[in-house]
Computed example of a mutant assay.
Amino acid sequence: MRVCIIGLGRMGRGMAVNLVNKGHVVYGYDVNKSIYAALNNVGVKTVDSVRQCGDTDYVVLALPTGRESAQVLSELSTNAVVIDTTTMSITELTQVLSIVRNKGFKYVTARLEGGPKQAESGSLVLFVGGDEQLYSNPRNSCAS
Rank of each mutant, 00 (worst) to 15 (best):
V125R: 14
D55H: 03
F127D: 06
I83C: 11
G14E: 04
G7I: 08
V3I: 14
V81S: 07
Q133V: 15
S123K: 15
G43Q: 05
D48N: 14
Y58E: 09
A37S: 08
I83M: 09
S98F: 09
G115H: 05
N79I: 01
K33E: 06
V59G: 05
L63N: 02
H24I: 06
P64G: 12
Y27P: 02
H24A: 12
V72M: 13
L134T: 10
C4H: 06
G122W: 10
L8R: 09
D30K: 14
V44F: 06
K106M: 04
C53N: 02
V81K: 01
G104C: 02
V25H: 11
L39M: 12
L134A: 04
Q95F: 07
A62S: 15
Q95A: 13
G129M: 11
V72Y: 07
H24F: 11
N140G: 15
L61K: 05
N18A: 05
S98V: 01
P116Y: 10
Q118N: 08
G114C: 08
T94L: 08
A119T: 09
N21L: 07
S89V: 12
A80Q: 07
G104Q: 06
N140M: 12
V25P: 02
V17H: 00
T86F: 08
L39S: 01
A62I: 05
A143S: 15
Y107H: 03
V82W: 09
G7D: 07
L63P: 00
I83Y: 06
Y27F: 12
